[in-house]
Design a protein around this nucleic acid. Structure first.
Lengths: 342, 342
DNA sequence: CTGAAAGCGCTTACAG
DNA sequence: CTGAAAGCGCTTACAG
């Protein structure tokens, strides 16, 4: 066996370390992988050799032997979303903790199909599993492709076929109820909602909870309205336009607006200001997500906090822990964060 | 040679395809890798077999044989930065184009050392190269560690040892000059700057250009001031506090504020409003970066556009093209974007 | 234009 | 507790 001299550029292999420690590669492997079946004396000798050689496992070799890559993939829909920034932050943090690495694949929802992006892109990275978020988590063709490849995946906030995989999400009802109570208690009586995407389960739940809770409070049905924004980028513009439309079309102008997410709410703020109205005196505005921008705008946005990063963190945990598909589903609470707009 | 039946769960290998096409694995490899030295007839036969088996290269095996992973790594400092969102967007887009994949490593600047995050984290991903941004691109210990490992890297907007690696950046002067001209032309005469980090080359250049251009325009030196924010999170708060301090301490109140970046500028907007002043009538405010939030706030922020995503895109291109370290450095222009705050 | 052999650096399954 | 052998699925370097 020819071994590269220790100060050569080539990184040390198990064989190098084994030769130096006077044992077999397999025993070094045991130490590296924290297998307990190694005598204290041998272990010590190997650990010294490991240090001296600066040994690092070669992931490619390990992956080839074990067919695991320790890579977790995710699609990155567009930069303009604070929701995804949070998802990635939580996932990256968990990856770090569980010894995985996060691979991000750009994906332009609307311009191309996720299946193509998977087959021509992410699949090549050979991840151990994927984390899927809306709207890709509800793309049946993608799920079919993943199932066909035997690719594992965990879905966050899915709307369809909830039982098809491990799924995590938040209990949106709770936060929306708190919001309604707060608006009502502060004297608001005319309400409008800027809706989310129609096929989005969470959006439906937020709408239903909003109007139902108001009805239970005895709110006059003629003082309730909903507007569906055009989903153009930037989302904030969509919120602004929807708000303008709202005030133009309604007889009974709202004194409180609840938007499907923070970006729409921020757009609503701009729209309300354009109409010469003040926030929150004339109109209260609330968003959903409690994303970073909520604290950035003025007045700071009142919104419903959703544990986005935490959901992503747990998704990685499930993957790392090889938890059973199903049975490990997680639903986390949401809560109202009162700031300056409502 | 025992071959798994075609409809087994195990993915096809070069050997399977070779057997089906009646050629050697090496020839299949040639077709897969687009080597031209294959007869048309053979190629066709192999391509059919490739399709029939649904063959996909095994990255782990390829990596082991070539010692390339087609992975590009980057540190992800914190979610609150739109600068990084843009970096990742540009990098992900380029990775997709060049057949690479982007690996993100969480890194909490301030709470830990990058070297540790590299050695305990990113190094394990065995990337072919790293993309480094401020402030990690100026961490000499990290660069030493990377050089020691023979890990390639490209730096975006470095401040120190510029010649140490391939470096990309923007010409900040241009945009700042345009801004000053604009402010002066619209009648502003008292200026304040909310400074960036002290050891940041780009920050220094923005400051110097700002004050120098104003001096050349004949601006009264007593009407020029600078304030250094405390770098607390969220950055917007730091901008707000700095602005409040500015107005409290200065005899000559500014009628124009230029902030090192958009987030500080947005904080300045909040500060100015708290003082009962209007934007842009009483005080003009401008940022730097032209990040997504610039369009989100009200009024939309006047700012200097920097091609962040483009820099990251080119960084990946350099890595993929194996361009020479040095000689391939890129400097892109910046320009003023006038919106509602100045 | 095509292929047989060796090797990349690990782990798995077996022995002892 | 320890090790020799085979194999993971590619590519490189040589032959022909």
């Amino acid at each position: 066996m020819t071994l590269t001299p220790p100060n050569s550029k080539k990184p040390a292999t198990l064989d190098h370390v084994a030769a130096l420690a006077g044992v077999s590669a397999k025993t070094v492997s045991r130490v590296v992988n924290r297998d307990s079946n190694v005598s204290a004396k041998t272990r010590e000798r190997i650990e010294r050799a490991l240090r001296e050689t600066g040994y690092r496992v070669n992931q490619a070799a390990r992956s080839l032997a074990t067919s695991r890559s320790y890579l977790i993939g995710a699609f990155m829909p567009h930069l303009s979303s604070f929701y995804f920034a949070e998802i990635f932050r939580g996932a990256a943090k968990a990856c770090r903790q569980y010894g995985y690495h996060l691979v991000l694949e750009e994906f332009d929802h609307g311009a191309e199909s996720v299946v193509d992006r998977y087959e021509q892109g992410l699949r090549g990275a050979h991840c151990d599993a994927l984390i899927l978020t809306p709207p890709t988590c509800d793309d049946e063709k993608l799920l079919d492709a993943l199932d066909r490849d035997g690719m594992r995946y965990v879905r966050i906030a899915p709307s369809k076929q909830i039982d098809r995989s491990t799924a995590l999400g938040a209990d949106d009802r709770q936060g929306v109820e708190e919001l309604v109570q707060h608006l009502w208690a502060t004297g608001r009586r005319s309400f409008a909602m800027i809706a989310g995407p129609e096929d989005h389960l969470a959006a439906t739940i937020r709408e239903r909870t909003f109007f139902q809770t108001l009805a239970e409070l005895g709110c006059d049905a003629t003082r309730l309205s909903i507007v569906r924004p055009e989903w153009n980028e930037p989302i904030a513009d969509a919120g602004r336009e929807a708000t303008l439309r709202l005030f133009r079309d309604l007889q009974q102008k709202p004194d409180a607006i609840f938007a499907f997410n923070d970006e729409l709410a921020i757009g609503a703020m701009a729209g309300v200001r354009e109409l010469g109205l003040s926030i929150p005196d004339d109109v209260a505005i609330a968003g959903f997500d409690d994303s970073y921008v909520a604290q950035l705008v003025w007045p700071p946005l009142t919104t419903i906090h959703q544990p986005i990063a935490d959901l992503a963190f747990r998704a990685v945990g499930i993957i790392a822990g090889s938890a059973e598909p199903r049975g490990s589903d997680v639903w986390l609470p949401t809560n109202l964060v009162v700031r300056g707009t409502a």
